[in-house]
Design a protein around this nucleic acid. Structure first.
Length: 730
RNA sequence: GCGCGAUUAGCUCAGUUGGUAGAGCAACCCGUUUACACCGGGAAGGUCGUAGGUUCGAGUCCUACAUCGCGCACCA
C-alpha cells in the first residue's frame, strides 16, 4: 500500500510523523547556524562557501536602544534585513550584517531616572554622577542581553563577532576623533544662542526631539500704549520693550522705526521702542506684537536683526525671575491667571478669545519646551568646508541624494528629505545629561582646549555636557568597521555599505546624520541604498503602545506560532514605506503554512523512497517538462523581485505556488501517477517532486529560515551544506 | 500654509510596465481510515471614495473634490 509505507518504514525521519514543532526546532537550528560560523563572512571564505573575491553585501543593523525589550517594529526590521542578508549570502556574496545596540542617551537616562524615582524615591542628584551612571550601565547591560537573546530568537543571521555599542571604547574614540576634526574645521562652535530647553529633563534638546501637541488656550488682547497686542503668553511679557509691526502696515504708518513711546505696563511705566520688521504678519491679530527674544525663536531672530537687548524672564526651572517684580519666583503656569487679574485691574485687557495652537513639548519628558538663550555646542550646517570643494554640510547632504549616490526606496521620501534639509538650522549637539559621550573639551580659566585625549597638565576641567546620541549614531556605518583606522580591513572591504534598512520615522534623526558625517569625514556616502519600512500597528491601525495595552510581544508570538510564521506575517501585505497592521489571525495562517510545507515533505519523501534525487535528471517526460518550465519561470520572477526588494510579492508567490499549485494540484495528481504510472512516468514525477521541494526550500529560506533548514536536514542530498549557505536556484 | 500617503469583498490588506479583480480571517454548503482537519472540494461576496478627462481599453495615468492619517513650517 502506497500510503501506508511510512507508518512502519524506518527510512523516513520520525520527526515527520508528527506535525511541525517550531518550539523544538528553532533554538536547536539557531545554535547550529551560530556554531557553523557562517554569519561571519570571513569564516564563509575560510570554509569555502563564499569565493574570496566575491561581490560584497554589507549592512548595519539599526542599533536598538538599550531601553528595554524588542517590540514588533524591531521584529519587522530584523526580518526584512535578515531576508536581504540571507538572500545575498545564498547568492554567493561576501555578506556582512553587523549588529549593535544604541546607548540612546536621553531615552535610557530618563528611563533609569523613572525607575529610581518609582522604586527608591530618589533623584539622580541624590546618587551623584558616578553612582547614577553605574545604575544606568547596569540597566543598559541587562537590556542589551535581552535584546541579543530576542534577536537570535527571531532568527537574525547577524555576525555577532563584530557586535558594537554606540558608547563602547572604540566608538568613543571615533566620536572624539570626529568632534576634534569638526572643531578644527570650525564646524563645531560654542554659541550663546536660543535653544530648546526642557525644564523637566533639565537639558537642551534638538529641533527633531520636539513633539508638537495641540493646546486649547486663551488669546489675550492687551493694551500696550496706543497699540493693542495679542499674546497667548502674558507671563513672558514683563521685559517687552520693543513693539514690532510691518513697515507697509498703513494702520501704523505714523509710527517711525526707532521711535520711543512711554506707556503703562504690568509693573509700572516703561519706555518702548518701535521696530519695523517684514516678518510680521499683518493679518494676524492686530498686526502688532511685542517681543520676548530670550524665550521665542522668532523674537530672537528679530532682535538679532535689529541688534536689540535681550532679557531673561524665566529661569531654568520655569519660574519667573526678579524682573517680574511681585510675581518673581512663581511658576509660569500659575502666574498667567494672576497677571491677567492685575492687567484687568489696571484696565489693560482689551478682550480675551479662545485659541488653539500647537505647543512644543519634549519627546522624552513630555514637558513644555521653554526656549532659552544659552551657551551650547552647535554644528554649523552652512559653513563652506575647504576639503569638500567649499560645500556646506547642508549641500553635501543634499547632493548625496540628488546625485543618486544614495537611492531611497520608496522614492517619495527623497522629497521629504529635501524638505527637511531646506529647513535645517545649526544642530545643537550638547546635552546636560550624564549618560553619553562626554564633550572632548577642557577649560582652564579663560582658555579652551579641544583634543582627542585630555590635556596632560593639571588644572583643566572637562566640559560637563554630553553629546546628542545621534552624534555617535551618525558615525555608525564606519565606526563599526574600524574607523578612524583607515587601514582597517573591514573598513576597506565593507564601506560604503550597500543597504541601510530602517523605519521611515528616523529618516531625519539617523539617516540624515549618517549622510552628514560620512560625506564630511570620508567624502563618500555611508550607504548606496536606503529601504524604509513602515510602522507596525495593531489590527485597528493604532500605534502599538504599552499604555493602550495593544502591544504584541514578538517573542510571545514566536513562542505561540513559531518564528517563521511571525516573520512571514510581517512581510506579506506590506510594501516599503507603508504601515503594517498585525493580527494574530494573519500569523496563524502562516503557522499553518509551515505545517503544510512539513506535510508536503512527508508526502514526497514517503512516496519517493526508492528514488535517488538527481539534481540534473535528464529523463523527464513531457508532463514534467511543462511543470518545470512553469516552476522555473516563477523562480526567475522571484529572483528578480528579490533584487527589487519586493519581498511582499515574493512571499505571497511562494506561498501560492506551494499551496494552491504544488499541494492542491500537482501532488493530488501525483498520487495516481506514482501508483499506476509506467516506470518512466514514476521516475519523472518523483524527480520533479524532489527537485521542486529543494528549490522551494531555497527560495523560501530567507523568509522562513527555521522550518526550511529543518526540512533540508532531513532530505537525502549528496554534498549537502547547511541550507543557509546553499546556492540560490537559477 | 506646503507636502506626502490612504480610500479595493463583512474585517485587515495585496494588486510590479493600463489588458475582463486577489489573499488571510469571518460567514455558507459538502467531504474525515491513509501527506496534511494546522485539511480538501464547492459556492457566495466588489459599479476598486466621488465627479470629470486621456485611451480601443483605467483599480492602475491626468484634473478637481471629499473623508481619514502623517510629515514639515507657522503659532505675537
Amino acid at each position: 500500500m502506497l500510503y501506508s509505507i511510512y507508518m512502519n518504514e524506518p527510512n523516513i525521519d520520525p520527526k515527520l510523523l508528527k506535525p511541525y514543532d517550531p518550539k523544538e526546532t528553532e533554538n536547536r537550528i539557531y545554535k547550529i547556524w551560530e556554531e557553523s560560523g557562517f554569519f561571519n563572512p570571513d569564516i564563509c571564505i575560510e570554509k569555502g562557501v563564499t569565493d574570496k573575491d566575491a561581490e560584497t553585501f554589507s549592512m548595519v543593523l539599526p542599533p536598538p536602544n538599550v531601553t528595554g525589550t524588542l517590540h514588533l517594529g524591531h521584529a519587522a526590521t530584523l526580518t526584512i534585513e535578515d531576508i536581504m542578508t540571507r538572500f545575498a549570502r545564498m547568492q554567493g556574496k561576501r555578506t556582512l550584517w553587523l549588529p549593535g545596540t544604541d546607548h540612546a542617551a536621553i531615552a535610557t537616562q530618563s528611563k533609569v531616572e523613572k525607575i529610581l524615582e518609582k522604586e527608591e524615591g530618589k533623584r539622580k542628584t541624590d546618587l551623584g554622577r558616578e553612582e547614577f551612571l553605574k545604575r544606568v550601565e547596569k540597566f543598559a547591560q541587562e537590556s542589551h542581553d535581552t535584546i541579543v537573546t530576542q534577536s537570535k530568537k527571531m532568527g537574525a543571521s547577524l555576525d555577532w563577532s563584530r557586535e558594537a555599542y554606540t558608547l563602547d571604547d572604540k566608538r568613543n574614540f571615533a566620536v572624539r576623533t570626529a568632534f576634534k576634526k569638526m572643531y578644527d574645521d570650525g564646524l563645531i562652535y560654542r554659541g550663546h544662542r536660543i535653544v530648546n530647553w526642557d525644564p523637566k529633563g533639565q537639558t537642551v534638546i534638538s529641533d527633531d526631539e520636539i513633539v508638537y501637541k495641540e493646546e486649547k488656550t486663551k488669546f489675550y488682547y492687551l493694551k500696550y500704549g496706543p497699540f493693542i497686542i495679542g499674546t497667548a503668553r502674558p507671563e513672558t511679557k514683563f521685559g517687552d520693550k520693543y513693539v514690532v509691526m510691518h513697515p507697509n502696515d498703513k494702520r501704523y504708518k505714523e509710527y517711525k522705526d526707532g521711535q520711543t513711546i512711554n506707556l503703562e505696563w504690568i509693573n509700572g511705566p516703561i519706555t518702548a521702542t518701535i521696530i519695523k520688521d517684514e516678518s510680521i504678519d499683518m493679518e494676524f491679530g492686530t498686526g502688532v506684537m511685542t517681543i520676548t527674544p530670550w524665550h521665542s525663536n522668532v523674537d530672537f531672530e528679530i532682535a538679532e536683526r535689529h541688534h536689540l537687548d535681550k532679557e531673561q524672564i524665566i529661569d531654568k526651572y520655569g519660574k519667573l525671575l526678579p524682573i517680574a517684580g511681585e510675581f518673581s519666583g512663581i511658576k509660569i503656569k500659575d502666574a498667567r491667571e494672576k497677571i491677567i487679574v492685575k492687567l484687568e485691574s489696571k484696565g489693560l485687557v482689551d478682550k480675551i478669545e479662545d485659541y488653539v495652537h500647537n505647543i512644543a513639548t519634549a519627546e522624552r519628558s513630555e514637558a513644555f519646551i521653554e526656549p532659552q538663550i544659552m551657551n551650547q555646542w552647535f554644528i554649523n550646517v552652512n559653513k563652506p568646508i575647504k576639503d569638500r570643494e567649499n560645500k556646506s554640510l547642508k549641500e553635501l547632504m543634499l547632493e548625496a541624494v540628488q546625485n543618486k549616490g544614495i537611492n531611497i526606496i520608496p522614492d517619495r521620501f527623497e522629497k521629504v528629505y529635501y524638505n527637511w534639509i531646506e529647513n535645517l538650522h545649526d544642530w545643537c549637539i550638547s546635552r546636560q545629561i550624564w549618560y553619553g559621550h562626554r564633550i572632548p573639551v577642557w577649560y582652564k580659566e579663560k582658555e579652551i582646549y579641544c583634543d582627542i585625549e585630555e590635556p596632560k597638565e593639571t588644572g583643566w576641567e572637562q566640559d560637563s555636557d554630553t553629546l546628542d546620541t545621534w552624534f555617535s549614531s551618525g558615525l555608525w556605518t564606519f565606526s563599526t568597521l574600524g574607523w578612524p583606522d583607515l587601514n582597517s580591513s573591514d573598513f576597506k572591504k565593507y564601506h560604503p555599505t550597500n543597504m541601510l534598512e530602517t523605519g521611515y520615522d528616523i529618516l531625519f534623526f539617523w539617516i540624515a546624520r549618517m549622510i552628514l558625517m560620512s560625506t564630511y569625514l570620508l567624502g563618500v556616502v555611508p550607504f548606496k541604498n536606503v529601504y524604509l519600512h513602515g510602522l507596525v500597528r495593531d489590527a485597528q491601525g493604532r500605534k502599538m503602545s504599552k499604555s493602550l495595552g495593544n502591544s504584541l510581544d514578538p517573542i510571545d508570538l514566536a513562542q505561540k506560532y513559531g518564528t517563521d510564521a511571525v516573520r512571514m506575517s510581517l512581510i506579506i501585505g506590506t510594501g516599503p514605506g507603508n504601515d503594517t497592521k498585525m493580527s494574530e489571525d494573519k500569523i496563524r495562517a502562516y503557522k499553518n503554512y509551515a505545517n503544510k510545507l512539513w506535510n508536503i515533505t512527508r508526502f514526497i519523501l514517503s512516496n519517493t523512497e526508492n528514488i535517488k534525487y538527481i539534481e540534473k535528471f535528464e529523463n523527464y517526460v513531457e508532463r514534467e517538462k511543462i511543470l518545470i518550465e512553469e516552476r522555473d519561470n516563477i523562480i526567475k520572477d522571484i529572483t528578480k523581485e528579490m533584487e527589487e526588494y519586493k519581498f511582499y510579492l515574493v512571499g505571497e508567490k511562494i506561498y501560492h505556488y506551494t499551496w494552491s499549485r504544488l499541494a492542491d494540484i500537482i501532488i493530488e495528481e501525483s498520487k495516481d501517477i506514482l501508483q499506476n504510472g509506467s516506470e518512466e512516468d514514476k521516475n519523472s514525477r518523483a524527480e520533479f517532486l524532489l527537485d521542486t521541494l529543494t528549490k522551494i526550500l531555497k527560495v523560501l529560506h530567507p523568509f522562513m529560515p527555521f522550518v526550511t533548514e529543518e526540512i533540508w536536514s532531513i532530505l537525502h542530498i549528496d554534498n549537502k551544506k547547511l541550507l543557509m549557505v546553499e546556492k540560490w536556484p537559477e
